[in-house]
Amino acid sequence: MQVQNPFPLSRDELLTVYRQMRTIREFEERLHIDFGRGDIPGFVHLYAGEEATAAGIMHHLNDGDRIASTHRGHGHCIAKGVDVVGMMKEIYGKKGGSCNGKGGSMHIADLSRGMMGANGILGAGGPLICGAALAAKYRNKGEVGICFFGDGASNQGTILESMNLAGVWNLPVIFVVENNGYAESTSRDYGTAVDSYVDRAAGFGLPGVTVDGTDFFAVHEAAGAVIKRAREGGGPSLLECKMVRYFGHFEGDAQTYRAPGELDDIRANHNCLKILGDQLTAAGIISQSELTKIDEEVMVLIEHSVKEAKAAPFPTLADLTTDVYINY
């Protein structure tokens, strides 16, 4: 008997979404290991645990839609279609990386994909995405801009100013709060006087919606509504995704600020990838073996990207002084 697909995405789309989320998870889990081994220079902020949000939002976007990402940007990059091998090379500081080794983890960008850059400055994406949305308004093709920021960066003036500007100019912007409960090591309860991001949006006349950011379908549906609204000229809005962070603020963070058992609970009960997998298999439209096959293919891809990254040459002295005008 033909099983009816109960979901608002086709089977193929669902497989793609699962693959994308698995790719992000595997990419980050692998970085966690390789960073621990000392293979990776600098520092990295991992997106693992938050995949459903990136995938749920990005599924509605095209290359012409711009996103402004954060320091925790690998997931946004992958979901927006940035090449995984290029990303891995970039994180290893190699030539041929997304930014030829000049940006690193916190600055991966691919404007051809509408990815305006991960950003090392918290809250800096707000104004930038207003500009992207303004440009979109001039182009008049219904493109939108998505600004990702965390519950921590929501306290930056830039974000609040951007909500005001987006409201004043009726820009097609969606402010996405990735609320994982921690601003670095500081809990949301401490650092946020009124802990509701929907309330802040309301202060600027923007409608807001809060969803479970670990449920792909919840994010997908809400994101679909806010993005459609923006495309049709309905203006800016805010989407708060409540989510969990699998790893520390950055790699090497001992996370002693977490409650005992918190991380175990997160992995056991708030694993967005497992939640999606279970939803798909329970509906009977995708089998566990299909998912396992994807898992294996993703493993191969990540392994390949690490190999490529390790084998790639470092940039040279000549590269030091290109891509910027040098006067003397």
């Binding site: 009124v194 309301a202 807001g208 509504a225």
Partner: peptide
């Protein structure tokens, strides 16, 4: 309930939002 009145109906129908404060 801290999250009542935070759902998608604010987007699609301008439903009210009772602020936390």
């Amino acid at each position: 309930n801290p999250v009542s009145a935070r759902d998608i109906r604010r987007i699609i129908a301008n439903a009210s939002n009772l602020q936390t404060s």
